[in-house]
Amino acid sequence: MKAAIVVFPGSNCDRDVQVALRQSMRGAPGHDEPIMVWHKDADFEKVDLIVLPGGFSYGDYLRCGAMAAHSPAMTEVVRRAKAGVPVLGICNGFQMLTETGLLPGALLRNAGLKFVCRDVHIRVETSQSPFTGRYQTGQRLRVPIAHHDGNYVADEEELERLEARGQIAFRYCEPDGAVTEAANPNGAARNVAGVFNEAKTVLGLMPHPERLADSALGGADGRPLFDGLVEALS
């Protein structure tokens, strides 16, 4: 399996996700070091997974992810995603995916108007995807969020469609799995923390699974996401 992480000016979780991927790939035969692809590079090698990392691409000075969506590398990412190459967008990467239209909806400023960094609980809505295969449907995970603009919105029709097609990947929940308003850290519609495209080959999520993929950091609930990807794409 080969993975590429696209590095934009202002990306700051690129190394973190590389570490998490490397950890899951280690030991498995035939795996290469996850490569870093510079945002100006539209012609990077063929890979089995593309990751759009968190951070503040281009300073987030326009709208989060809006400028990244028009970078040379992203034009290529969109092309490959449409051809079925799996794409994972975390935080700022999720924002890029909605900006490019690879995922429906948009991410607005948090309802509380402030940047929020803390562990949250999310519920796995389906294990039927290359991203969530190592989880059980309904499983609760503790993972951190760190964002200013994670308030997921889509119109009612779109939300219904997402529900009907099983495109909602994760929802913010209480530790016991209950989906409540109190457990929603940013005002996201229907507590949505992550969504798939229709083919479930593209996942965008606001929480950072790469930040709790190592028990030395206080939890490893994020690790099965990477382990599962390596397994599914090898």
């Binding site: 960094c117 803390r118 951190p144 930040r211 950091l217």
Partner: peptide, 16 residues
């Protein structure tokens, strides 16, 4: 205060 600060980026914060 500190929930407004990203205290985990770089994924090496062992003691928060």
């Amino acid at each position: 205060v500190w929930e407004q600060y990203d205290h985990m980026v770089m994924a090496d914060t062992v003691g928060r």
